[in-house]
Amino acid sequence: MGSRSRYLWLLPSAALLGVILALPLLKGLAGGVPGIGDALRDPAVGRAAWNTCLFAGISVPLELGLGLAFALLLNRDFRGRGLARALAILPWALPTAVMALSWRWIFSDSWGIANDLPRALGLLEEPVPWLGRPGTAMAALIAADVWKTTPFVTLILLAGLQGVPSDLYEAMSLDGAGPVRRFFWVTLPLLRPSIALALVFRLIQALGIFDLVWVLTGGGPADATRTISLEAYDSVFRHLEPGRGAAVTLLAAAGMFAVALVLGALARGRGDA
């Protein structure tokens, strides 16, 4: 097999992307180039970018932590593990827009369980309109997103764990290493590529968050949850300014690309990046 022919392995995927996405992307984004300067100076874009970073900066680490804990748990042997795995996937399988509607009801000040439960437990005296105050609305958004997307991380890390050879553990156990040491010396280093993968794609998804915000808060109150993709979407479909939408998208994509690559490389470790 010649060295050129190795690239043949890439052909199907290149064809799929080339035929379906490349041209529309070029057409859709080319119109955005002249507007980049204006978008950079636009305070609305800056505000949305800040909200987006705040959202991703809090929700992604939470998801990685929870996802890792769940994956470790689900990798152990116990009765009912199949069912537990099914439950763990469930939030990811629910259509976002619909489940966001559920969350709106859950956070309601009157008939929402996010008020009823803490009140029944004596944690709250007055009902809190979670989605009606700038700070709590962002917190509610993060909670809903962590719930929805932790399974994505869990699934990737679980697959990564299943690739960790069990003989390594046995060897370590014979050396008298405890579970904590085994985790830090064996599991975590071997999981690094999976963690990097989950991190990169969760970051991209979180920085591009749309449906959940759209339904849950619409970007409010007082623009406190308005994210960058809401800004882009409104430009295209509400204000009929596809050029501005493309400019905002280009900026956001450039930022996302840089952040994802840097953090991904860090998570993967130097040797492999």
């Binding site: 009606g132 700038p134 409010g220 109150p221 007082a222 409104d234 009929l240």
Partner: peptide, 22 residues
């Protein structure tokens, strides 16, 4: 023709007044 932008600006500041941030 720019009503959607007018409305967006109104929404932003009306909401801010309602939650007392302006």
């Amino acid at each position: 023709p720019q009503y959607s932008r007018i409305s967006q600006s109104l929404q932003r500041h009306l909401s801010a007044a309602l939650v007392k941030s302006e």
